[in-house]
Design a protein around this nucleic acid. Structure first.
Length: 365
DNA sequence: AACCCGTGGTG
DNA sequence: TCACCAAGGGT
């Protein structure tokens, strides 16, 4: 037996973590009550996203959509607008579909059932467990990155935690801890403990209330856990986009729902091939996706470097003008000629916001 | 199973 | 600076 779970006193571990939580818990807007709708919204927003980033988005969202019914009757684009800048935009579209499903198939009441919850778009094992534990106080584990890190250290799980074998072990340990009378508190306590004390780097082991149970602390390899494979270097992509005007209006395109920044509005453009100059790639992209042929020269106005999780984008920006060409759209879901103000009101990514900022438009400043 | 999907903080 | 990583899920 490699893991030292025999050394871990489950009840004492639980009490120490809960005690730490009660003394250190943060005041967060989704901790005001136990409305499963609000817990659900917060958990979707918190997927791969830090608490401090989520808070203002959560407050805006709940104010606009206070109930699952109000969300279900909304336009998807308005949901995306409220999500603009938060990232992982498929979450927003899944959220809207899930709201409709809760209303249509469950009369607007969130099911108290893991399998039923996981049938909602965007709700996986973690989120289902979090809703059950936090909103309904059911003894269901919710294993996120914080829990994985804390439990891999405490129980000495030294396998690759991205693999099924280690995940099952962590899940099992997490579920074995869901025994007391306050599953919701303990669920949040364990995550917050992982976030604040059992941190990825510079963990606060000397002040940790449960270090006497911790296998990694005893063996001195806390910062080596959890073990994960090295990430591959991001692929470099070159793109070109243009602020294209026609009679005081500007061309906005809606990206396809699938793929990167799906469903968001953007400047027209596309990928530049390796053997192309940016301007040539832009002209080709505009013809292929929109049927546009731009005469004359284009004004290159800048360049942006933008990092995604596994891609590095080098985006060349241009400005141009056309008179009365008709758009024959193929590569996008929609297009509109709009004022700059309207453009920035459409749901768009931080990359597009950065592009507008880079264009340094006195029209919008 | 492996890859895709954003953004901002952090040391 | 830049690699890591965050209250993961879909395909």
């Amino acid at each position: 037996m490699k893991e030292n779970q025999n050394h871990v006193q489950t009840s004492e571990l639980r009490e120490k973590v809960l005690s730490w939580y009660h003394q250190n818990k943060r005041d967060l807007p989704w901790r005001l009550g136990k409305d499963p709708y609000q817990i659900w919204i917060s958990e979707i927003m918190l997927q791969q996203t830090q608490v401090t980033t989520v808070i203002p988005y959560y407050n805006k969202f709940i104010k606009r959509f206070p109930t699952v019914f109000s969300l279900s009757t909304a336009e998807v684009d308005e949901v995306l607008s409220l999500w603009s800048g938060l990232g992982y935009y498929s979450r927003a579209r899944a959220l809207h579909r899930a709201a409709c499903k809760v209303v249509e198939e469950h009369n607007g009441v969130f099911p108290r059932d893991r399998m039923k919850l996981m049938e909602l778009p965007g709700v996986g094992p973690y989120t289902a467990g979090a809703i059950l534990a936090i909103a309904f106080d059911m003894p269901e584990a919710a294993v996120d990155g914080n829990v994985t890190r804390a439990l891999s250290r405490i129980y000495g799980v030294r396998n690759d935690v991205t693999k099924t074998h280690a995940k099952k072990k962590i899940d099992s340990f997490a579920q074995s801890l869901m025994t007391g009378s306050t599953p919701g508190d303990f669920c949040q306590a364990l995550m917050e403990f992982g976030s604040v004390v059992c941190r990825p780097r510079s963990p606060r082991c000397s002040k940790c209330a449960v270090n006497k149970f911790c296998d990694a602390f005893a063996k001195g390899d806390v910062e080596q856990l959890p073990h994960k494979p090295l990430k591959t270097a991001p692929k470099i992509i070159v793109g070109a986009a243009i602020l294209l005007s026609r009679k005081q209006k500007f061309l906005a395109v809606k990206r396809p729902e699938r793929g990167l920044l799906g469903g968001l509005w953007d400047l027209p453009g596309g990928e530049v091939r390796k053997d192309e100059r940016p301007e040539a790639g832009l002209r080709r992209s505009l013809f292929e996706s929109l049927g546009l042929v731009l005469g004359g020269s284009l004004e290159e106005t800048g360049r942006i470097v933008h990092l995604f999780t596994h891609r590095k984008l080098i985006l060349y920006l241009f400005r141009g003008e056309i008179n009365s060409q008709r758009v024959r759209r193929r590569g996008f879901a929609a297009h509109r000629w709009v004022s700059l103000k309207t453009f920035l009101d459409l749901p768009h990514s931080s990359l597009t916001a950065k592009a507008f900022h880079s264009l340094n438009l006195k029209e919008i400043s």
